[in-house]
């Protein structure tokens, strides 16, 4: 076992554990935000840089700090390592800058985005965003497109976390979409109008941290915070059949995987469960889901958010909860 200290809390973890997963073992406020890492997807992480932390002490053998911040999602723990996250001014400052970078090209169209309320970028901006944007240049723009019958892509909202690409590579047996072009012109796209149609393709919606990939069968039906999440299951031949139903009254508005407190699905589900089974009678309902602790919905942050006008800092417009 290796011993690691994060923000003065010590934890023991197995060899091969990343700093982020060690922090998750402790839990609570000291866990760095992760916009691109996804524990169920091999190779994910390292890109968004929101999880950067400071290494004050590399290891017992080498008690020196590392001058640059490191991505906690892809840096392995060494014995005796001392990490600073929320107690480091430098980390908080850089995280703020990275949040700003993620937002400069973001359309800030939360009022019309189906992800609002369960969006990792909203959560991140709430914690680390600036009150006002310093970006006054043009934002990049893409037209929304349908990639397959059930999935909508709003490239404007994409933060290029590559999670959907890894999902397609690892969960769906044939990847027909990917990243085209470079830099801030890079875009998620299907190859030659090849639609994403596969029994498990819907999972790319669940892994997307923002509203770039959304469920066309749910579009504009309701704001997520008006729906009631319920744990439910059915006998399914393709997947475990364990899902979350998002109900409005007695109607099933949306089906997703069950997400944990880090917004990761516990298990990937098939498209039949996700898109076809929209009747209450299709499901055995277990009971209400506990809403995850980090979500904006559960913390009742909407009130606060609107006051800080983070939702649309450019115009100072805010979304009102009716």
């Amino acid at each position: 076992m290796l011993r690691l200290t994060i923000d003065n809390i010590t934890v023991e973890v197995e060899e091969g554990t990343t700093i982020l997963n060690a922090a998750r073992k402790i839990g609570g406020k000291i866990v760095p935000p992760a916009m691109c890492y996804y524990s169920k997807l091999k190779g994910s992480g390292g890109k968004c840089r929101t999880c950067l932390v400071k290494i004050a002490n590399t290891s017992e053998m080498d008690p020196r700090p590392i001058p640059k911040l490191v991505p906690s999602c892809s840096t392995l723990v060494q014995n005796g390592m001392v990490v600073e996250n929320t107690i480091s001014e430098q980390v908080l400052k850089e995280r703020k800058a990275i949040t700003e970078f993620l937002l400069i090209n973001h359309p800030l169209d939360c009022p019309v985005c189906d992800q609002a309320g369960e969006c990792d970028l909203q959560n991140l901006s709430y914690e680390h965003g600036l009150e006002e944007t310093r970006y006054e240049e043009e934002r990049r723009e893409f037209a929304p497109i349908d990639i397959g019958e059930k999935i909508k892509l709003h490239m404007n909202r994409c933060i290029l976390c590559y999670r959907c690409v890894y999902t397609a590579e690892q969960i769906i047996n044939e990847r027909v979409h990917g990243v085209l072009y470079r830099g801030d012109k890079a875009e998620i796209s299907t190859f030659v109008e090849n639609f994403v149609e596969n029994d498990f393709s819907g999972n790319i919606i669940d892994v997307c941290p923002v509203g770039a990939l959304t469920d066309r069968t749910f579009r504009f039906k309701s704001r997520v915070w008006f729906t009631n999440p319920m744990d439910a299951h059915r006998n399914c031949e393709k997947c475990s059949g364990k899902v979350a139903l998002w109900m409005f009254g007695d109607d099933v508005y949306r089906v997703t995987g069950r997400k944990d407190k880090y917004n990761e699905v516990e298990e990937f589900i098939c498209n039949e469960c996700r898109f076809e089974k929209k009747k209450t009678s299709d499901w055995i309902i277990e009971g209400p889901r506990k809403i995850n602790r980090t979500s904006v919905i559960s913390q009742n942050h909407y009130e606060k958010l609107t006051k800080q006008s983070i939702i649309n800092p450019t115009e100072g417009k805010t979304e009102q909860q009716e």
Partner: peptide
């Protein structure tokens, strides 16, 4: 800006911002 691969947010977003400010 033209050559950033676009993987990590500071480079993808920051290089374009730099160029646009300098252009102005």
């Amino acid at each position: 800006h033209h050559e950033s691969c676009g993987q990590c947010s500071p480079c993808r977003e920051g290089t374009g911002w730099q160029e646009r400010l300098l252009y102005r």
